[in-house]
Design a protein around this nucleic acid. Sequence first.
DNA 1: ACACTTGTTATACGATCGTCCAACAAGCAA
DNA 2: TTGCTTGTTGGACGATCGTATAACAAGTGT
Lengths: 210, 210
Amino acid sequence: MSIPASTRAERAFTRAEPDARRQSLIEACAQVLAHNGAAGTSVRAIALEAGVSPGLVGHYFAGIDALVAATYGQVEAQVSAALDSALAQAGTDPRARLDAYVTASFAPPIASGELLATWIAFWSLVRSRPDIARQHDEQYARFRARLEALLAACGVAPARLRHTAIAVTALVDGLWLELSLSPGAFSAAEACAIARAQLDALISTSRSAY
Amino acid sequence: MSIPASTRAERAFTRAEPDARRQSLIEACAQVLAHNGAAGTSVRAIALEAGVSPGLVGHYFAGIDALVAATYGQVEAQVSAALDSALAQAGTDPRARLDAYVTASFAPPIASGELLATWIAFWSLVRSRPDIARQHDEQYARFRARLEALLAACGVAPARLRHTAIAVTALVDGLWLELSLSPGAFSAAEACAIARAQLDALISTSRSAY
DNA sequence: ACACTTGTTATACGATCGTCCAACAAGCAA
DNA sequence: TTGCTTGTTGGACGATCGTATAACAAGTGT
């Protein structure tokens, strides 16, 4: 009844470096999240996307939550790298650097409906899983700290640094979220213009507080 | 084998007004979303919470997505009512009304980790379901339109009205989101202060554009 | 009192879920 | 070669999912 092994045309077994396999599972998870949404993201779908048997997911990750968390971590690293790249191309003028850092969030690969699915899936775990809440807090703190440095270089008063960074982070997050959720409401170019205008207003008033 | 009907001690059957039943299912859905998160929200869990048999959910809603959408609609109505109430208590000064409208988003019942679960569950449906995307767009447009009216009363130039409203909406959304996701990052009072400062900056610069 | 409508229950059904595990394949050491 | 370690497979397992449906309970009109 069973098919003899000799008739197998496909190579179903390929061994990979553990790190590479982990990486491919993370990428498959991101793909499935982007295509099927959070509700349609299952171990089987991810394994299928990665071209791997379902059992292997459990071999590398404690559960699907851990895989989603790892995927979010990788997405965050990519976003961070994109911001770094924007910063590197911005030259030395403090204000230009700040603008580049902020507006990079509204261009690919950061502003993308596909990334949003990963973010939402991650957010849905924050409230119930303390470890994931900590991961989120760390990512948020990191983003804000870098923003504070850029703002300080633009002459924002130290006493206002914290609140200004929170404000800019909220603005960027809000614009990015809406841009990803419904691209028709306003354009990426508008988001950049809005953010720049807001930065103008914030920096001038904050500088006057010296 | 079967238990005679006469031995049933509990009254398992209670008929309700269709609207009241719909309402109770929506409230149960919100409860389950708040307690179990989006992943733990199933037809059975909702029916159990509402004290009703699972089949009844299908009798009132086409599917669980429709119930989530209805729940989001109700939450949005509650938020809108809370904002109206804040506006009603704000008096007649345009700037005070704007402040009240904006900062109300950072106080109960709007700023709440429980509400966040409903929002996230709804967001996760936006990308794949056009009808839900439309519902989201309408809600967003409604909020922004009211904000535009309040900003216009504060002297914001008409040409800047649209961008200013988008900016304030993004700021409020970003602050609200972070406040709900990780209450430890900053306090509600800080969010209010940040929003007020931002409004100051926006209105003064926008007024100067006359 | 009677049939009729309709909200509601309880259950059954097939599909899919996450997890587990014995068998297997490849590389490595001896 | 032989044995051992380990990445990998593929299917089994029980649980839970959304949905469909027949039986039932309470009004309602006649």
